[in-house]
Design a binder for these strands. Structure first.
Length: 646
RNA sequence: GCGCCCGUAGCUCAGUUGGAUAGAGCGUCUGGCUACGAACCAGAAGGUCGGCAGUUCGAAUCUGUCCGGGCGCACCA
């Protein structure tokens, strides 16, 4: 509702400027510094002052002569601000009737790719940041009416999987059958976590062993032999583990495109022909990249023509690099490859949603994915160089529009705080001790596993729930503790902007008070409790539409405190819109916290059930219900559920 | 060496794209449960927005420069 009025005000001022001065200037709106200044401020007069060679104040006076539906007053303030006061009765009435003037969106398909964890070991907290950011962004887009397809790319043929296969074959002498037994009997992703680290150490101590990796990669590529078989078993089992971990956080996917099919279905071969044909890459005949197909650095780095900086796309042995495959994959995402995968059902979630995986075998279905008009790749910022190369590839092929609609949705890494390292018994080098945080490393087995963190959070939440609700059944307390744990984790991950390095600290992540997910849930639970108590006392929830006239609302909203709280509660759409535009999910998270704070203030200041004036009680009940709805909606966008109690 | 990112309260971070008196949480201190549940609320203390120079009506925000920190710059992904 609020952002509709903001837009209406901006449009009105804009057309006023056009008619007065014959100028087309974009009009900004902002929030006044003080509540007493009104609800919306327009600084347009300052921008016009220079062009018109007039005092801002005089311009503001001319602009102010406007009537806008929903606006009660326009004042000139300061040196030339237009301060705008909303018509409170109008505003509340429209909130009540749900007639907020929101317009539906056109349904172009947006592709969001996130998670993309190498299927060779358990997920860690860095992967969680990726998945939570991606999933929340998806929820934001969907809540504004966009059509979104969620992809989770599976690199099942790469070095990381090969190294775990090396571990099984050469360090543990296991057959495919024995690996299958492990999958059935162990927490397999944890097992691989340790094994992968062991292989890393082994390589360091025995560099000759690297030949095992090369052999294994060949076997996987030829899709033959025990190595290839184990690689399939490992990758599939780990993907299932990752999906199970993510589901704990309410994260689901639509499709899993796999690298094996990019190769088998010759996606790369098609892209390779295009790249050669358009001369986006060339065959290097001398220097360090002799015998490779390379992309010149001038394509992806401004002002660079140093051949040493060129990026190898096809190795001298004829195999394609990750970037090459990624260019082919990106082409497919935009529907520019003229080809699609086949799809087989991979897994059906408890809510009935089906996730599909790519396959190279024709299937008896008509599933199609990809061919989006806009693509967000949620990938950490350390890969921005490679993402630049991929986009340069699109551009070099002449797909400038698509290159412009390829967004590297980047975020900084999650590292470990020194305190967390000590807590986990990790020995730090002298160099690391001097740092304010320590980077995680899968190869060294250094990191906090996602499932471990979630378990810890649930355990702590369960303690809290039990201390207040010991009489409730254990299974139910457990379910509620899980919701609280998810809220804590998702909020903790989202409270930072994307380009802030998170130095993960158990103390902060496990906190349930202050600016946290559980704080917001608590507000929603309290709102719900008031409404539930009403029923317990034998009173019915009034029909607000018939019981509250516009005039009555206007009267009750003359109370400045009450009005400010309602105003804050009505700004969910603004927050979501701002998050989508800026690509910063944190704005919605922070709004949710503010909203919860506002409700806590309301809760403290305005006793609802003990109110003796019937009309005022009805009004306060409506406020409560509106807060409850807005809290639930905003939390849903963050992927957080509201428990019945906590 | 080159490229990108960061430096804001004791700590961890926001700051709506250049606007009015720079904000939260944690921590510290003071107060509030016989109440619609205290996972809460009210209040206090705490700032040369890394330094300097510029751009203009106006700068935490833009430009330059210096200082300090991080991450990239593979025929790994």
């Amino acid at each position: 509702m609020f952002h509709i009025l903001e837009k209406r005000i901006a449009a009105a001022v804009s057309s006023r400027i056009a008619s007065l001065y014959n100028l087309t200037t974009p009009v900004q709106t902002e929030q006044p510094k003080q509540a007493g200044f009104g609800e919306v401020a327009v600084p347009a007069a300052f921008q016009l002052a220079r062009e018109l060679k007039k005092a801002p104040k005089a311009i503001a006076a001319e602009l102010a002569d406007l009537t806008i539906p929903g606006v009660s007053k326009i004042e000139i303030a300061g040196n030339g601000y237009l301060n705008i006061r909303l018509d409170r009765g109008y505003y509340a009435h429209h909130l009540l009737t749900g007639d907020t003037g929101a317009e539906p969106r056109t349904a172009e398909k947006i592709i969001v790719e996130h998670t993309n964890i190498n299927p060779n070991k358990a997920a860690h907290i860095g992967h969680l940041r990726n998945a939570i950011l991606g999933d929340t962004f998806v929820r934001m887009l969907r809540s504004t009416g966009q059509r979104v397809e969620v992809q989770n790319y599976i690199d099942n043929t790469g070095v990381q999987v090969a190294d775990v296969v090396v571990g099984f074959r050469h360090l543990e002498n296991k057959s495919p059958g024995q690996v299958q037994q492990l999958i059935d009997s162990e927490k397999f992703d944890y097992y691989c976590w340790d094994l992968y680290a062991r292989v890393g150490t082994y390589y360091q101590e025995n560099p000759d062993a690297l030949k095992w990796r090369a052999e294994t990669l060949h076997s996987i590529e030829a899709n033959a032999g025990a190595e290839a078989e184990i690689a399939h078993l490992v990758a599939d089992a780990i993907v299932h583990a990752h999906l199970a971990t993510m589901l704990r956080l309410n994260i689901e996917y639509d499709v899993l495109p796999r690298e094996s099919e990019i190769l088998h279905l010759k996606f790369w071969a098609i892209a390779f022909e295009q790249l050669k044909e358009r001369k986006a890459i060339y065959f290097e005949t001398e220097g360090k990249n002799k015998g490779c197909w390379v992309m010149p650095s001038s394509a992806f780095r401004e002002g660079s023509d140093n051949e040493e900086d060129s990026k190898v796309i096809v190795r001298s042995n004829g195999t394609v690099t990750y970037v090459g495959k990624d260019i082919a994959y990106q082409l497919w995402k935009f529907g520019l490859l003229g080809k699609d995968f086949y799809y087989r059902p991979w897994h059906r979630y408890p809510d009935g949603h089906q996730v599909w995986a790519s396959t190279d075998q024709p299937q008896n279905n008509d599933m199609h994915f990809g061919a989006g008009s806009r693509v967000y790749n949620v990938i950490d910022s350390r890969q921005s160089y490679l993402q630049d190369v991929v986009v340069a590839g699109l551009r070099a092929l002449g797909y400038n529009d698509q290159a412009g609609r390829s967004v590297h949705f980047s975020y900084e890494m999650v590292a470990l705080s020194p305190a967390t390292c000590v807590e986990m018994g990790i020995e730090l080098s002298e160099e690391d001790k001097r740092k304010s945080y320590v980077e995680m490393s899968g190869r060294k087995g250094l990191g906090v596993k996602a499932d471990d963190l979630i378990d810890k959070l649930i355990e702590k939440a369960l303690d809290e729930v039990t201390s207040r609700n010991a009489d409730q059944p254990a299974q139910e307390r457990n379910r509620i503790a899980t919701k609280i744990a998810v809220a804590a984790l998702r909020y903790f991950t989202l409270k930072y902007t994307r380009n802030t390095v998170i130095a993960f600290d158990f103390g902060e992540a496990l906190s349930f008070t202050g600016e946290t997910g559980p704080y917001v849930q608590y507000a929603a639970v309290r709102a719900h409790k008031i409404l539930a108590k009403l029923g317990e006392r034998g009173e019915a929830l009034p029909d607000f539409r018939s019981a509250l006239s516009r005039e009555a609302m206007e009267r009750h909203l003359a109370d400045e405190g009450c009005w400010q709280l309602l105003l804050e509660a009505s700004k969910a759409d603004s927050a979501i819109e701002r998050s989508v535009e800026s690509g910063e999910p944190t704005h919605v998270a922070r709004y949710a916290f503010q909203l919860a704070q506002s409700f806590s203030t309301f809760y403290q200041k305005y006793p609802v059930l003990s109110e003796t004036d019937p009309e005022r009680k009805t009004f306060l009940l409506w406020m409560t219900d509106y807060f409850r709805a807005q809290l639930e909606r905003t939390l849903a966008v963050l992927g957080i559920e509201v428990p019945e109690y906590m």
